[in-house]
C-alpha cells in the first residue's frame, strides 16, 4: 500500500503523497515543534520538510523505512534553519556543554534537586529547557523521551551508530537537567 503511494508520489501525484504522509504529519509537526521551540516555526518547518520530502521522494529507497526517512528530513530541515539563524539565536547548551563552565555557572554541582518542584511547574520548565539544548542533543531527547523511538530507530533517523545515540542521550539528559535546575533556581 505504502509503496504504491510512494510510486504514485514519484510521478507527482499530490493526493497520493498526502495519503502517504497523513499518518506522519503529526509526528513531523511535533518534531519540528520541539526542534524549533514555537508553533509558528514548527508549522513552517514541518511544511517545508514535507515539501522537501515530496520533491525528493524519487530518491527514497524502498528498503528503508519511510517514516524514518521523513523524520530525518524534518530534523535536518530544522537544523539547517537553526544554523541559518545562528547569529540571532543563542543556545545555552553550547556554552553549558562543557562541564567546567557548567560548574562555574551553577556554582554547585547539582543545585536543588528537581524533585522538590511541582509537577506542572516542572513540565513547563522542561519545555523551555528543551529549547536551550543544542540541535543534536535536542533531537535525541525529542525522539527518545518525547516520541518514544528506540535506540535503533533513532540511530537510523539521525544516521549515527547506536553507541553514539546512547552516549548522546546520556549527555543530553544531564544537560537538560542542569538547564532545568538553573531555570528553576532563577525563578
Amino acid at each position: 500500500m505504502e509503496s504504491m503511494l510512494i510510486e504514485k508520489s514519484i510521478q507527482g501525484d499530490v493526493a497520493s503523497f498526502e495519503k502517504l504522509i497523513v499518518k506522519y504529519n503529526r509526528y513531523v509537526y511535533n518534531i519540528a515543534f520541539r526542534m524549533m521551540g514555537n508553533e509558528e516555526d514548527a508549522k513552517d518547518m514541518s511544511q517545508e520538510a514535507l515539501i522537501k520530502a515530496f520533491r525528493a521522494i524519487s530518491q527514497f529507497k524502498m528498503e528503508a523505512n519511510f517514516s524514518t526517512w521523513l523524520y530525518r528530513i524534518t530534523i535536518n530541515t530544522c537544523k539547517d534553519e537553526m544554523r541559518k539563524r545562528k547569529e540571532n539565536v543563542l543556545s545555552y547548551d553550547v556554552e553549558v556543554a562543557d562541564e567546567g563552565t557548567l560548574k562555574d555557572i551553577i556554582g554547585d554541582d547539582r543545585g536543588n534537586p528537581i524533585l522538590i518542584y511541582e509537577k506542572l511547574e516542572l513540565k513547563e520548565s522542561i519545555e523551555t529547557a528543551l529549547n536551550a539544548l543544542s540541535e543534536d542533543n535536542k533531537s535525541v531527547i525529542v525522539l527518545k523521551d518525547l516520541l518514544g523511538y528506540s535506540y535503533e530507530e533513532i540511530g537510523e533517523i539521525l544516521q549515527i551508530p547506536i553507541g553514539t545515540v546512547r552516549s548522546r542521550l546520556n549527555r543530553s539528559r544531564s544537560a537538560l537537567k542542569k538547564i532545568l535546575q538553573i531555570q528553576l533556581a532563577e525563578n
Partner: peptide, 10 residues
C-alpha cells in the same frame, strides 16, 4: 515527565 508530555495537535 517528558514521556507524559502530550503530542501537539496539528
Amino acid at each position: 515527565l517528558m514521556g507524559e508530555m502530550d503530542l501537539k495537535a496539528l
